[in-house]
Computed example of a mutant assay.
Amino acid sequence: MQAQNVRIDLIELEAGTQQRKIDPNLTEQYEKLMADGVEFPPLEIVRDGDVYILYDGFHRLKAILNIGKAKSVRAFVEKGTQRDAIWRSYGANNKHGCPRPKGTIKKIVTAILSDPSWAKKSLKTIADHVGTTRDNVNHIQKAMREATKEYEQQKASSQAVKGEKVIDSPPPPVKRASTVEATSSRGKKYEQKSQAKEHKKPEIPTDSVGQEIPKHLVTLYESRSVVYDLLRHLQKLKTEVDKHVKTRDPTFSYLNETAFKANYENLRRTLKTVIFTAVCCNCNGDTKVKCKPCGQIGLLNADRYRAVIEELKPKGKKK
């Protein structure tokens, strides 16, 4: 397969194919190597209609975006669907690139085994694709089955009505609240509920380039889903029209195909400019200060993000 040039603004980064967060240190290393003329392997992309879904090469693309000069990148492009891209992303970085963080393999294998179709694959096939052992996949599968069994038991227990016969199955294990040992006034030891609250560390939301999103901007950033829904509807519209044209439906006899495709492409490109890509790196998302790049919104689209990154670079003398 030969690599081809793909416009950066056409690449889809939010299709569920990024299995780990961006590592800023690794990205910085890539930037330095690229500046020294080191040639990196092409990105790997699945083309679903007019959508180019990246599934391998997020750190390389982030470094290219930070450098801010390129309008297109070299990539291996295969035709397929979003589902194909997600499956391929599960095997990315299993033999090269930055080592996957702890817990990533378990997360990937769990996702595969939770899918009715992918779960039919042999344990060896899954292990080879993800880059782990068959025993590890088997261990994760058993843990999932035990968790499912426990859930079903708890569900059956909660649905049991008073006066009915209880099913002859062992009751689900009771999860005790955390306790501490205490001593009564008579010297007798007993357990009592701990007053300390257990706090689960919340997952920190990040933008498309791996930056942490300030709390006051999370809702606005997540509103991108509205634009993605519109883009999906637009893609369905084009697919439907193409189907009628291909079958020579007389209803579309007067359709100007060239104009239709051009208008579709313009509308799609215009909608993509609306999508928030990153927290403004000029004001760091502080909407209380006057910021020309983001207009006090706190967020930037892809084009403005690249422009701001370029402006913030130190202006050194050209050699």
Rank of each mutant, 00 (worst) to 15 (best):
I8L: 15
E12P: 02
E14K: 06
A15Y: 03
Q19D: 06
I22G: 02
Q29K: 14
M34H: 05
L43S: 02
E44G: 08
E44H: 12
D50H: 10
D50Q: 05
Y55G: 01
Y55Q: 07
G57Q: 08
A63R: 03
I64K: 14
I64D: 11
G68A: 13
G68E: 11
V73S: 08
G80I: 05
W87Y: 07
R88F: 10
Y90L: 08
H96F: 13
P99D: 09
K102I: 10
K107R: 12
I112W: 00
L113N: 07
L113Q: 01
A119G: 09
K121S: 12
T125E: 14
I126S: 03
I126C: 02
D135K: 14
Q141Y: 08
M144K: 11
R145T: 08
Y151S: 11
Q153H: 05
A160V: 07
A160Q: 11
K162A: 14
E164F: 14
P170C: 08
P171V: 07
P172A: 00
K175W: 07
A177R: 04
T179M: 09
V180C: 06
A182H: 02
G187R: 00
K188V: 01
K188W: 03
K189S: 02
K189N: 06
Q192D: 07
E203A: 13
P205C: 07
T206R: 15
V209H: 00
E212F: 08
I213M: 02
I213C: 00
K215L: 06
K215Y: 09
L217C: 03
T219N: 14
Y221A: 04
E222W: 11
D229P: 02
L231H: 01
R232V: 09
L234M: 03
L234S: 10
K246Y: 13
T247N: 03
R248N: 12
F252W: 15
S253H: 10
S253Y: 15
A259M: 02
Y264R: 00
E265T: 05
L271C: 12
N284C: 10
G285Y: 06
K292H: 12
K292P: 07
G295V: 00
G298V: 00
L299R: 02
D303S: 08
R306A: 02
R306K: 14
A307K: 14
G316A: 10
K319G: 13
